[in-house]
Design a protein around this nucleic acid. Structure first.
Lengths: 207, 207, 207, 207
DNA sequence: TGGTAACCGAGACGGTACGTCCCGTCTTTGG
DNA sequence: CCAAAGACGGGACGTACCGTCTCGGTTACCA
């Protein structure tokens, strides 16, 4: 998932540094940033390693040294938070429903920025085409949204706000999935949509 | 969305036929079938017009005569039902919840076939990358699933099975979106997932 | 030695033209001219197909369509006379020795042009490295010089100017070889050198 | 022509040795040997410093410390006798013509070994492409052959065996040049060729 | 019935991008 | 301070496709 040689990055106390010039973390960051820009501009299917390397001011071989393929590059781009990073925080201010509606509205605000939308769509397309990227996508989604949603639902459960034994994880996935589905089908996330989504989830359909 | 010159195809009694040899409908069908096979095998980002033409036994120019770009080719492939065609019918046999759960289980059965899954994932990726394809994807989804789901929900409403003024279209989208999201994140559609999805939608979270 | 598909070029009465767009003879000529220029400027070892294609205003694939490798490209460049073309004619004006000395002096004049020298040196280096190129080099040398030298020697033989049963072919090779050797060892072809060469060949060393 | 810092190599009693670890003469020798092997295997145009360094068990920087460029490396390789070393000695046993014919036959024997031929061809190509290498090539040729040939011719002159005031240097060059030309045009050095060469030089063409 | 017009397959065209190899330089650890 | 190791920015390799074009040949219509 990560780069080919994550040792230097992930092992903070590595005392047996390998011989030779160490990998340039700066180059890697430039690559990731350039990849994000390329994804924003051209989407996953038109991603060009040549352009990424040029934009990053880096030799092509350096890209391939870090990342064996387009997939792991995009996946690491997701994991490092270069994509979908500035997601919305879930605040505890009122009822569960209000808090989650707030969060959705925050997400909706974010989609006013066309670049963010393009980036999420590109990441979605990449995830659909490659399991490795999909894992990175999921991990990022968990970090940014699902964990918070699950925690809030569990808290509401404890507070007796909602039914006990609610399938919190599934509910979080339904919320995230429905919204992402809207994005990648190029439909706007309307205010009424998120209200109805919230209503359905909290009241259900029973009479 | 459709081919560049759909006249011959859609108007069987067109009396103002243009001069010259008419386009070969057989060539078009071969192109669409080859496109489906390519999507299944390689996904959207590795789709090759050269390979499609070769597999269809057709000159490359013939592909471009019908379809100005990869996008409209894939979009027409969706619209003509070459992708996601053998979807499940929604039967009215019991309660709304049972019927919809049945439909979901039917969809789940379909995902046992890896080729179908690959095809839906490729179509998802294509839709995420291109608005035109997204429209074709949506149209196909409406035809195959959402219209039936909406109709069933409305019927249940009339029968008093469920609450009046239910947002049927949004509910249908939540169902379809949640399931497609599972597919393109490369997660299995488990039995428990569809049960919980069904439960949430029909009972909601309220205590 | 020649291009990969010389059929169209060499068969003047070919009535069974292959399907598809015919090869562009103009492209081939542009490639050969660009190759000559590259050889002049950079020599054989720094020959770049990228640069040749760019200079010829041609896609790289077109170069490879005509020529499977650098070797056959350079060999064809030699055979088509793009290299070493404007060599000197051997005139019959006086004695054999005078005529051949005249020819050598003409060759020497040609080597006043640094581009011609660079080109011959590049062709020599290429021939030394590749048997296929060597054959083209030899063929060109035969056409441009050795045949004429051999003919002049044979004529002198008939005229009783020189000894009968002289090894004309070997003598021609000694003349050409000694001069080319001077070129590729980056030594100037001096007037005294060609005079001495001529003297040795015609008078020998015997007292 | 030689290495960048020949002091350590050529001055065994260098009293102003620079500070720090002295350069490894063993490394230099390994580099030269590896260069010879590379030249034999791949020729001049496919010479790779990376491969040379790896084969010599030496860092790339060490190669560049000794040799600023491919040219001076190959030139030093020639000067140190790593290329064309096992050339034939010229023995004084009979007449000049017999001795020189013997020498030629010895050279011809050497060309039965394909590796020797490949090496000479590679050195020729290198010389043709680079004046610095050409100088090394000439120097080596002088050492190995031309000086001996010139000396033998001068001796014959003194002995009245051949005409006085013969251009010994030019004759030596004709002999060496004609033979090397045969090599780099990938033609075999036949017995009849060297006999005819010898005959022409000693008897000339006059009737 | 013989043009004429648009199609057909085939495949070459000028290009862009691929992933690899090598260049000559730089930057580490370690002798 | 040298040596090995090996990453660096850069350039070229030979291949795969792109979308366009140009062939010979086919199949309709319309005059």
């Amino acid at each position: 998932m990560g780069p080919d040689f994550p040792g230097a990055a992930s092992s903070p106390h590595n005392h047996t540094m390998p011989a030779g010039r160490p990998r340039s973390e700066a180059a890697r960051n430039a690559i990731l940033a350039a990849t994000r820009d390329e994804l924003t501009r051209n989407g996953y299917s038109r991603l060009s390693i040549d352009r990424i390397a040029a934009a990053a001011g880096v030799g092509k071989q350096t890209v391939y040294r870090w990342y064996a393929s387009k997939s792991v590059l995009v996946a690491d781009c997701l994991l490092q938070g270069y994509v979908m990073a500035p997601a919305v925080a879930l605040q505890e201010r009122g009822s569960v429903q209000d808090d989650i509606l707030d969060w959705m509205q925050g997400f909706r605000e974010m989609t006013r920025n066309p670049e963010s939308v393009a980036l999420i769509r590109a990441a979605s397309a990449a995830a659909a085409e490659d399991p490795q990227i999909a894992r990175g996508f999921q991990e990022q989604m968990n970090t940014l949204a699902r964990e918070a949603l699950v925690a809030r639902i569990r808290a509401a459960e404890s507070a007796g706000e909602i039914r006990a034994n609610s399938p919190a994880a599934t509910i979080a996935e339904i919320i995230v999935g429905s919204i992402i589905y809207r994005l990648f089908t190029h439909e706007e996330i309307t205010a009424s949509f998120i209200e109805e989504l919230s209503t359905v989830i909290f009241r259900g359909l029973q009479p």
